[in-house]
């Protein structure tokens, strides 16, 4: 089977993110970048599926040439090849989904796996748009019943279960009141939640092998996608700084404050 996985370049969560004084964006100097952790979980799941069922993982990213670093990371983990959509201007979630649609139509994967959201703007929209654009089934927030300390996880058993003839996929999803199980006809779009798996490290031999794996370059023009944004970012601002907490003398005071001040109980 062929699995297409996204690898968005995002700010390293350990970097200190500062908003520019004029609110036009964030200060990029000195920032470190990495693959979106949810996408990394997607790469891991894809690799486990092809280890079990055969096939290949193709990884895709959109951005300037710097996103090749994230593609190489996924290749070092074990993906076979990469697609790089070279685009540096503004791009909204519809534009991203439009580009991914064309890549998916070109690659014809059995499954597209995306992070449920990217940790930079936390939009959580592209997977859903993409499924709609492609007219495929979707299962968002893929998770699993077993814990991340379980034997299944240690043995790198895929959490997504393929149907008997590889015509469908069974996905356990995290929902507000627990776990729901969905069965989707293939091809389908799956987005990953945090507890789906623990991604492997990029090994040193993997890193060196990734050097010679192919990266195909595409552009919005080549894919005939109009990426003019429909959504515009007007201004960015830091959230107000958190106020210091207080200590209460006893439980009665705590309950009183929760009830009458915070009004949460």
């Amino acid at each position: 089977m062929k699995i297409l996985v996204t690898a968005k370049r995002v700010e390293d969560p350990e970097s200190k993110i500062k908003v520019k004084p004029d609110g036009s964006g964030i200060v990029q100097e000195g920032l470190k970048y990495k693959i979106n952790p949810f996408d990394e979980i997607g790469v891991e799941e894809g690799l486990r599926l092809v280890a079990k069922h055969g096939g290949e993982v193709v990884v895709v990213s959109i951005g300037g040439k710097e996103v090749q670093e994230q593609l190489r990371h996924a290749l070092a983990m074990g993906a076979t090849r990469a697609v790089w959509v070279n685009h540096t201007g503004p791009l909204d979630q519809m534009g991203v989904a439009g580009l991914l649609q064309k890549v998916a139509e070109k690659e014809k994967p059995d499954l597209v796996i995306l992070g449920k959201q990217a940790i930079d703007d936390d939009q959580n929209q592209v997977g859903q748009y993409l499924a709609e654009f492609l007219g495929w089934g979707q299962a968002t927030f893929a998770s699993k019943v077993e814990s991340l300390e379980s034997e299944q996880e240690k043995n790198k058993v895929p959490a997504l279960q393929m149907g008997a003839d590889n015509k469908s996929v069974r996905v356990v999803r995290e929902v507000d009141n627990g776990l729901a199980t969905l069965e989707c006809a293939l091809p389908a779009v799956v987005t990953t939640d945090l507890r789906l798996n623990l991604p492997r490290y990029a090994s040193l031999p993997g890193i060196m092998k990734a050097k010679s794996k192919p990266i195909e370059e595409l552009t919005p023009a080549k894919l005939s996608v109009d990426v003019t944004p429909k959504v515009q970012v007007l201004k960015m601002a830091s959230p107000p700084p958190r106020k210091a907490g207080i200590k209460v003398p006893d439980v009665a005071t705590l309950v009183d404050k929760l009830r009458n001040e915070a009004k949460v109980v």
């Binding site: 990495k34 670093e69 490290y201 890193i207 060196m208 050097k211």
Partner: peptide
Amino acid sequence: TQEHRAIRQTVRKFV
């Protein structure tokens, strides 16, 4: 190089 950075990332995450 890109490979140096990748190795650094793996080692740091491992640690």
